[in-house]
């Protein structure tokens, strides 16, 4: 396995264990409560977040298209640009949503439900932001003439892997916080 890809796989393992820790803590807290979300807490907007999830999933598919075409020699960055634009849209919509609920939450006593919601969604948001910054770095890397084509393909693979992780994590968190 090429170095950048192997390193990214290890990063993703660490991240998976990190979110595994948060999610298992969340599930344990949830089954200890009778009513979840507790009474008096804001209901979460279902449809807006659902459509936002679709946006992120499409972004993931576009990233896959970019990766496939780049590997087979098509150096166009079109799909990468579309993927990152959709990523930015997701980040902004989810960020405003998060802030809106946070501002509501500050007025009431912070509860365990709120704590978990802000932490899980906030942490995912930070990872989307990190993914976008990594894509920004990828643009720079691909324009660097001193790197070989092989190196570029490896870095594209690594960045795509991270983006898939961020994209595929969201449905899990969505299911856990918004649906059940």
């Amino acid at each position: 396995m090429p170095g950048p890809v192997m390193a990214m796989v290890m990063v993703i393992i660490v991240e998976t264990m990190f979110f595994g820790g948060l999610i298992s803590a969340y599930i344990l807290a949830k089954i200890a409560e009778v009513e979840w979300p507790p009474a008096g807490q804001p209901r979460l907007p279902f449809w807006l977040t659902f459509s936002n999830m679709i946006v992120l999933l499409i972004s993931g598919i576009l990233m896959y298209r970019f990766f496939k075409s780049y590997k087979t020699g098509n150096k166009s960055l079109k799909y990468l640009t579309f993927a990152s634009i959709l990523g930015i849209v997701f980040f902004l919509v989810q960020g405003f949503e998060w802030l809106r609920i946070l501002l509501f939450g500050i007025k009431t006593e912070p509860s365990l439900f709120g704590s978990f919601f802000y932490t899980l969604i906030g942490m995912h948001g930070l990872h989307v932001l990190a993914g976008l910054l990594v894509i920004r770095y990828l643009y720079k890397y691909l324009k660097n003439p001193s790197k070989t084509e092989e190196q570029k393909v490896h870095v594209v693979t690594a960045v795509a892997l991270f983006w898939y992780f961020v994209v595929l994590l969201w449905p899990v968190l969505y299911y856990l916080t918004y649906l059940v």
Partner: peptide, 19 residues
């Protein structure tokens, strides 16, 4: 990973008033 998650939650408990 889980300890980093736990540490993060502990930092929030200290500084952001989560519970």
């Amino acid at each position: 990973g889980p300890l980093v998650a736990g540490t993060f939650m502990l930092l929030l408990d200290i500084n952001a008033g989560t519970g």
